[in-house]
Design a protein around this nucleic acid. Structure first.
Lengths: 197, 197
DNA sequence: TTTTTTTGCTAACACGTGTTAGTATATTAT
DNA sequence: ATAATATACTAACACGTGTTAGCAAAAAAA
């Protein structure tokens, strides 16, 4: 009888969620079927329901898992006593790092959250709005301190977050460039675009 | 008997494609049903098939329509005799403009092309690769001429294109800022991030 | 008007979906 | 070993999907 293999640090549910992340990224949430997922886990579709409540629950787990990580990092960075532009750079680096090392989950959370259903949907949207406001506040602080160009902070946030999403293309490509120098290049362009002269 | 309304310059098929763009953006290609589309057009689902061959054809039309517009613009800009960095800025402005004024189609083409099926899928992917190579070549020319920082050109392209995709968020928001100053801000940050000092 | 063509409708199909019920078989606890 | 629990299986359901066939009505051409 087939059985979901687990290693010491992850439950069977976690294995399923991880496989779901891969599948949802590849095909999109709607196009990925529970039978697809079951196959990739090595089990029959119905068996999944011993570990999860629904397909949507998988999306919850992914979206809120990612959202929480970003929120906690924001808490941490806000509390630091360093120049605003360094806070911004720290957050950008964190985003890049997350996108490189937790590609699937971050990508899915970013692109597929629309398919959440209330009350999770509004909840997620609120968190997202809050996060962007806090990010914009960092940039505005930098503008006040003349560290950052006089630009529209929300627009800057929008550019930054989406630009980092471009790492998707790097992931899917032949990766001619290393993760480290990808990061360097992104920082150069993005922070360079913000910095005052 | 309900009838699809058309104005002088657009066929019934074009009306359907336009409505499909809106729907595909809102719900995603997979989640949008032909019955949804029919309702938004004001007709029964089966009636759509007097004008189109399949649901996928709608996606073809959208994806390749957008791709062709970008390709033609690239032809045009490459042929101009202006500094490389100005070519890059021209292309960025074109992208922003397209994203502002043909939001639905561009967005769908960008996010939903995965659901194309061969041979259209590979075709589209090739076009996309070509386009990015040509864009990167513009940037590399700028680097040779010392107009642009020494950065990895493919990475820069990746950042630029995805950053512009962020206009999506602007579209969905309350649009506190005008299209013109949104453009200015984006140019400032993006071109500023590329330009050598 | 009469004929032809375009367009829309109803009904139905074959299929894939998420999910549940009921049951068998492993694993763990006693 | 026995009991209890966790996990997987088969079978099936109700439903939504894209699409087609056949027919009616409207518009265009004759």
């Amino acid at each position: 009888m087939a059985r979901i293999k687990i290693d010491k640090n992850s439950s069977r549910k976690e294995v399923i969620v991880a496989k779901a992340a891969i599948l949802f990224r590849e095909k999109g949430f709607k196009a990925a079927s529970m039978r697809d997922l079951a196959e990739s886990v090595g089990v029959e579709a119905a068996s999944l329901y011993n570990h999860i409540k629904s397909k949507t629950e998988l999306l919850h787990e992914l979206c809120f898992g990612v959202a929480n990580r970003f929120m906690h990092k924001m808490d941490e960075v806000e509390a630091q006593k360093i120049p605003a532009i360094e806070k911004v750079e720290t957050m950008i680096r964190f985003h890049i790092d997350e996108m490189i090392n937790h590609y699937e989950e971050v990508y899915v959370s970013d692109r597929e959250w629309k398919h959440l259903s209330d009350p999770y949907l509004s909840n997620f949207q609120n968190q997202r709005r809050m996060y962007r406001k806090r990010f914009a506040a960092l940039i505005e602080a930098g503008i006040r301190d003349k560290e950052i160009k006089k630009i529209d902070a929300p627009t800057a946030v929008l550019i930054l977050l989406h630009a980092i999403g471009g790492i998707e293309s790097w992931h899917r490509s032949t990766k001619k460039i290393s993760a480290a120098s990808l990061t360097d290049n992104m920082i150069t362009i993005l922070v360079g675009g913000l910095a005052n002269k």
